[in-house]
Design a protein around this nucleic acid. Structure first.
Lengths: 201, 201
DNA sequence: GAATTTCCGACCCGATTGGTCCACTTGATT
DNA sequence: AATCAAGTGGACCAATCGGGTCGGAAATTC
């Protein structure tokens, strides 16, 4: 009773690994319950449906992502490093989440409106973060952009470009190259020329 | 007509990526055919059944494995390097194959006798390779073992230990540590003491 | 333009699976 | 020890899924 919430979390954690591996569709309640060493029906004592579990898992994963990204920003100090770190971690984390994407983009599974909610909310948060990063960098004189808002939106647009599955269907080395290219583009377009050429000549 | 065999290979390649990702059970014929941009029934023109495709895929994968391993041996010259390279590549390749293992060890799917055939044949080949490696190393005076045959079998036994899923359920770094430990054990037990202590003091 | 190769939509039917029901343990409380 | 709520899981159901078939339509070859 006191640990019901606790066990819900355990379910979330377990289901998370399975979902991330096989996606929503291919993951069965039986697998989840077997992984938990419980009867299938017992799971329904904690969650009303498979979708409900999935919703909790996605929410949990979104929170994980948020905390990792804020950590990535706090780890370093200079705005270029912050931005670079942010983009890097974001890229790596999204790679891990690719299977959830499969689930999301799975046709006839578009009734997952909660994902859209999470997503749009996350988009706004990210935009705020980027705007702040650009703004601070601007103030410190290391960035030189006219409008932080628009620049942040532009960066976010590029970041979104890295989300499309096509981006990931290549070899590891290629991906790192592409990341470098994107970083270079952002920085050389954003940095005062002296520093920019220093970092990405 | 002339390219029927060719198209079979294309099917094998495509199916291979899906099988390796989801395993035999969770992979559907519909997915395979969709990935090939063909109707489901068309696939049956080239293969008689899902299992038949799987068999071809596993066989193909086994051949890939073999060629990569022989390449690993040829790349370097000294017997210790050959052995080391062989074990290293074998480890990496088996990691990639872990999903086929899931398929194989899937309960109620033990009627895949062809896998056992491939496997036992591969075991014999591997034993021959190891025996030769040990034998040559012995002749060159860099190994010092009494019986190449038995030593090869012992090494193979350790290698097999790395196949059990349990071995892989850990973090990357841990695995590399374990590999080092295994290599160290093999070499320090096999090398003439001077060289052995040189390489793995 | 017939013959042959290749493809596919529609269908079949057994297996799978999300979800329900209900009888049962368990363990705390009185 | 009797009660009761929390928690469990086996049996079951209805719907869907998915491997495989079939007849014939395209496409290609001769």
């Amino acid at each position: 009773m006191v640990d019901k919430e606790e066990y819900r979390e355990k379910i979330i954690l377990t289901a998370s690994t399975i979902f991330s591996h096989y996606g929503f569709r291919k993951t069965t309640m039986d697998e989840i319950s077997r992984a938990l060493k419980k009867g299938k029906s017992s799971i329904y004592y904690y969650f009303g449906s498979k979708e409900e579990i999935f919703e909790a898992v996605v929410l949990h994963e979104a929170n994980q992502l948020r905390s990792r990204l804020t950590k990535a920003i706090k780890e370093v100090d200079s705005p270029p490093d912050k931005l670079r770190n942010y983009i890097y971690v974001r890229m790596k984390e999204f790679a891990k989440l690719s299977n959830y994407y499969n689930a999301v983009f799975d046709k006839n599974l578009d009734h997952f409106d909660f994902i859209e909610k999470i997503r749009s909310r996350y988009d706004r948060e990210e935009l705020a973060i980027l705007r702040l990063l650009v703004y601070v960098g601007n103030n410190r004189g290391v960035f030189a952009v006219e409008n932080s808002e628009y620049t942040a939106m532009a960066i976010q647009t590029m970041l979104k470009g890295m989300e499309v599955p096509l981006f990931w269907r290549k070899r590891e080395i290629d991906i790192n190259d592409r990341l470098e290219a994107i970083l270079s583009l952002i920085f050389n377009g954003i940095l005062k020329k002296e520093e920019g050429l220093l970092l990405y000549g």
